[in-house]
């Protein structure tokens, strides 16, 4: 089975936010929630670079480890998903997640939060594949249709890569060799405890 990962080649990302928009549109993500965002480091300074970030689908995922109702599961493709019928919106996964991936719709009293929402790697959720209920709760299930995440497919510069970790790492390494530089795979050390030399 594949080990699905994301890799953002920040030497290519031009902060066009096409991935963010594609994601919001594909899954009808509600207002105020961003499953993916583009962060620009050193904005306006030498060494400025942009990185498109979403849930990294971590190995030994911290969100799953702290969830008080244990509602996470990892698919055979190593995609980290959760069951919204079990989630209580406590916010613990956001405290534990190194990438700020979990999001909560604001609901009712106080700061009370609705059920957590995050990137599904376009793999839906625990409902039956490609059903209406799955779409409403989690968005499209492209993986079940044999397609990769829409963000990476839409990327105008092909900076954002999605797919099996070994394959996308090989593509990235080839780019680095050819152009002679690269700043490495953002988040890989934190998410996969894997060092990815530039």
């Amino acid at each position: 089975m594949a080990r699905m990962k994301f890799l953002c080649d920040s030497d290519r990302c031009i902060e066009c936010n096409a991935c963010v928009t594609a994601c919001k549109n594909e899954h009808e993500v509600p207002w105020g929630i961003n499953r993916r965002r583009v962060v620009t480091l050193n904005d306006g300074k030498p060494g400025e670079r942009s990185i498109s970030m979403a849930c990294m689908h971590c190995t030994d995922a911290p969100c799953a480890a702290v969830c008080p109702v244990n509602c996470f599961y990892t698919t055979a493709d190593a995609v980290v998903l959760h069951d919204k019928d079990l989630c209580i919106g406590c916010g613990y996964c956001f405290y534990a997640c190194p990438f700020g991936a979990p999001q909560y719709p604001k609901l009712g009293n106080f700061g009370s939060r609705g059920k957590m929402d995050k990137c599904t790697y376009c793999a839906g959720g625990p409902q039956a594949d490609d059903t209406a209920v799955e779409y409403i709760q989690y968005g499209a299930n492209r993986l079940a249709e044999g397609k990769l995440p829409i963000c990476a497919e839409m990327c105008s510069t092909k900076a954002l890569l999605a797919g099996d970790g070994q394959i996308i790492a090989a593509i990235y390494k080839e780019r680095v060799t050819r152009r002679g530089y690269g700043s490495g795979a953002w988040g890989w050390r934190t998410a996969y405890q894997e060092d990815m030399p530039a």
């Binding site: 965002r37 480091l41 904005d43 990185i51 700020g100």
Partner: peptide
Amino acid sequence: SGRVSIPDQQAANLIQ
């Protein structure tokens, strides 16, 4: 952290 162009400024934390 860096800068984001969406209103949620918490999203500007790339890795915590």
